[in-house]
């Protein structure tokens, strides 16, 4: 059974800790600079118009989440939580709430600062962003679990940043059609296409399905790695 009280305890601790963590705080605001730079450009290509949104989810959802998890391992505090009445689900949820809330705040801020045109279907947009958040936070948790230190997450996170956060930039340089096809199934691209098609009034069911599959898969992989690496 999941205890809200125990989850809340972890969230409050993480919040207090984050306020004193300069590395995490500076990482959290980086997407705002990107959004500002994007807002200065004119005639932005459709392919990259939603990039600041995915970038903020990678920087905040994945990087901060990875740092939070890796620090628990690095400082040997995760073991303390595991040996307390917290169960696995409570640890997962508790350790993800702060990254999720920060990500949502940053996504909204990025949309506003970057003047990013958004579809009118607020509910669908919210659902798509929340599903994407599950994916990026899971990726962050995996990064945190496989890294031994917070510094390692920065190194291990670079490919994630390039592939998921700035993938649209690189995709414009690729000529191989099969590679473009494969990359088009990555969650950032799916989210971008979903938002674009919503704006164009087109069907988005397929993109939702792909994003949902990514979310389920990433959560399963996260749980598997957690069970393998939690006491390392």
């Amino acid at each position: 059974m999941i205890s809200i009280k125990r989850i809340q305890a972890v969230v409050i601790k993480d919040y207090r800790d984050l306020l004193k963590n300069a590395y995490m705080l500076s990482t959290a605001v980086i997407p705002l600079f990107f959004a500002f730079i994007f807002s200065q450009g004119e005639g932005m290509e459709t392919a990259v118009v939603f990039m600041p949104i995915t970038l903020s989810m990678v920087m905040v959802g994945s990087f901060i989440q990875a740092g939070v998890i890796a620090e628990e391992k690095e400082k040997n505090t995760l073991r303390g939580l595991l040996l307390s009445p917290l169960n696995t689900s409570e640890i997962f949820i508790g350790k993800s709430v702060l990254s999720a809330v920060l990500s949502i705040i940053m996504v909204v801020a990025v949309i506003l600062i970057g003047n990013i045109p958004m579809p009118d279907q607020t509910l669908l947009v919210t659902a798509a962003i929340l599903i994407s958040l599950v994916i990026f936070i899971s990726i962050g948790t995996i990064l945190g679990l496989v890294s031994r230190t917070v510094m390692e997450t920065s190194v291990a996170g670079i490919p994630v940043l390039f592939i998921f956060g700035m993938g649209d930039v690189f995709r414009t340089m690729i000529e191989s059609e099969w590679l473009i096809k494969v990359l088009s199934y990555l969650p950032d691209k799916q989210l971008g296409q979903l938002l674009q098609q919503l704006m164009n009034g087109q069907s988005v069911g397929e993109h939702f399905l792909v994003l949902a599959l990514w979310a389920v898969l990433s959560v399963i992989v996260t749980i598997y790695i957690f069970k393998k690496r939690r006491f390392d």
Partner: peptide, 29 residues
């Protein structure tokens, strides 16, 4: 698990937080 207390060879604390904040977390848990 509530009936057990475990101090491992490398138990850690949240270094940026106060003694009180560290213990408050476990009070809640």
């Amino acid at each position: 698990m509530r009936r057990v207390g475990v101090l491992t060879d490398n138990s850690g604390l949240y270094e940026r937080l106060t003694v009180n904040a560290n213990l408050q977390l476990y009070c809640q848990l």
